[in-house]
Amino acid sequence: MSSSYDPKKITEIHEHLHSELPSDPALRVKALESLLVEKGMVDSAAIDAWVDLYAEEIGPKRGARVVAKSWTDPTFRARLLADGTAAISEFGYQGHATGHIVAVENTPGVHNLVVCTLCSCYPFALLGMSPGWYKSQEYRARAVRDPRGVLKEFGVSVGDEVEVRVWDSTAELRYLVVPERPAGTEGLSEDQLAALVTRNSMIGTDRVLKKAG
């Protein structure tokens, strides 16, 4: 099962597929699954297991726990900033697209924003499925040109004194934004703190977390 690595050949195949496949994505995907099962390349029960895992267990709550721990445990925070993959592995959160996690911290003077302009790279095993807007042309185009305008659309205003740092995921590094701990949360447990951390705050499209989630 070799591949040609030939863009001309693939372009022709795409044209052929474009004219031969049904238009409805649901029909196309159903046919592909049936075929892969018949070919002995995919087991439908394994698909079910993956979907269940990412619908139930693996999601942004994982990232939120990591962030909450970084707020309460300075030595963990130091480990997270030094080697994100090793730090999340302490939770057993290593998995798909988390081989090279880089944690970047927000401060009063810095706001971080993550994008993948070339496709849709995202730290799946840490944040779960990516939101639709993250994969949209508008976000991919604008995050690296007008990040403050993008943030405004998400309801985030960053002052002129704040430096915005954008991270384009062009390699296999995956960025995790560590938002600031909200003021007035000194008495909260790690679990309670984790409940305050939004998914968007770990991508960078949210900044000031609310004291009560």
Binding site: L32, E33, V42, A46, I47, W50, V51, Y54, H96
Partner: peptide, 12 residues
């Protein structure tokens, strides 16, 4: 169908 497609990618 989105879930099936994503899962197929992971399960293969």
């Amino acid at each position: 169908w989105e879930a099936r497609m994503w899962g197929m990618n992971e399960a293969m």
